[in-house]
Design a protein around this nucleic acid. Structure first.
Lengths: 173, 173
DNA sequence: GTTCCTTTCATGCATTTGCATTTAACCTCA
DNA sequence: TGAGGTTAAATGCAAATGCATGAAAGGAAC
């Protein structure tokens, strides 16, 4: 295991962060300008539209969107307050629940896409030459490759995407 | 101007966000585990070590690190409280100031790198095949290409990287 | 059943971020 | 000089995030 990263790895890393931040802020700005909710809401809405019956367990949303448990809980709160999703009882697990997209939620998902899509085209597509997008997709795929199931589990229990600190929750350090 | 993004552009975009988030959270976790401050502090420290006399104007830090003005102001606060930087008067502009790195700040920069470097190697370098890093760096370069000077200006005045809402600051909408 | 551990979800509290505004210095132009 | 606009930086307040913990149900071992 090489402890010192190569020069071009460092450069790739630096630009990865920068490019994601730049594009994301441009896209978020477009949404905000159109009076639409933030991207995280879209992610949730899209996952729900794709799920059978338009519903998922919070724990499943956390896993798919790399959300920390408490962030998911509160995001669902806000979206429920806005009428885009609704909490449902979960018959087969008394601890759990379902989050179901509402018809307003489906409308909102489509409405956001009408701004989001063009924004992606503008902030990403328009800056790449033919063929670049595919190459970039493939290269980035190597970086998002699933961690081991165990690691994903552990990550979710704590802070999800950020998972600061490696101490496990209870005594099993 | 194409309003609908191509399929592989959307995929590249999705993975861009995901890859940046995944790598970043892994790296931040390594820092936190080592009891070190967040990445944003390192960015500031590094910029300062590279600047002549180890000092920069806050406004310059904002520009280089894509920080919103108020975020920069408060980040400097925290780092100053931790003794890593110090505010200095700015002779040639009474409104402004300089942020100067302290010797503790220089030590901290090196100390962070001893964790940060290996973390980059692990979370980025180790996942790429030979040649990938260079290709990725070049492709991402197309996405970070400087916006026009005017756009950068406007972005900085408001929220910097996030620049939500297109309403300008005063009456000049 | 009872005990003990795990999983799911919520929440109090502190920190951080975002937004809008304020303060003060600078700059232009007449 | 001085009026009007611009730029640098700080800050009050609200919203979002992170951390730790809590409460309740599931499940395994006995």
């Amino acid at each position: 295991m090489n402890r010192e990263p190569a020069e071009d790895v460092v450069q790739a890393w630096a630009r990865l962060v920068r490019a994601a931040q730049t594009a994301q802020s441009g896209i978020e700005a477009a949404l905000k300008q159109a009076g639409l909710p933030p991207l995280a809401w879209y992610d949730v809405l899209l996952e729900l539209t794709r799920a059978p019956d338009g519903m998922l367990r919070p724990v499943e949303l956390e896993r798919r969107l790399l959300l920390a448990q408490y962030n998911a809980s509160r995001l669902i709160d806000r979206m429920a307050r806005a009428g885009l999703v609704a909490r449902r009882a979960c018959p087969e697990d008394g601890r759990g629940q379902f989050v179901a997209i509402t018809s307003d939620g489906r409308k909102m998902q489509r409405r956001i896409w009408r701004v989001y899509g063009p924004a992606i085209a503008e902030h990403v597509g328009a800056r790449l030459d033919p063929g670049d997008a595919g190459t970039l997709r493939d290269l980035l795929g190597k970086l998002v490759d699933d961690r081991t199931a165990g690691a994903a589990q552990r990550a979710r229990r704590r802070g999800g995407p950020e998972r600061k600190g490696m101490t496990a929750r209870k005594k099993n350090v």
